[in-house]
Amino acid sequence: MQQQIIEILAEVKQDPSLPKRVTGASHLVDDLNLDSLQMIDLILKVQDKFSVVVDFDSFQVEHLSSLDRFTQYVSGLPRA
């Protein structure tokens, strides 16, 4: 799943070189400079890819504090 999330991140950031510099510890905001629109775009694409449901009203930006943490969050989401 993490590899697929990295591919989505590269697409959201429009940066094909992103997979080379991202690690499980990478902070999606402070290291990858994801802005607020890109966060939404990432979540919409993750929902699409993994058929999961995200509640935007309760989403915490802390879920983006590392790629590992975001992957864990996505894997725990209810299925659509």
Partner: peptide, 15 residues
């Protein structure tokens, strides 16, 4: 900032 690009039926449904 307030513009969302929607590129799938699923994203449309979510919004």
């Amino acid at each position: 900032k307030g513009n969302l690009r929607i590129d799938s039926a699923r994203a449309l449904g979510t919004i």
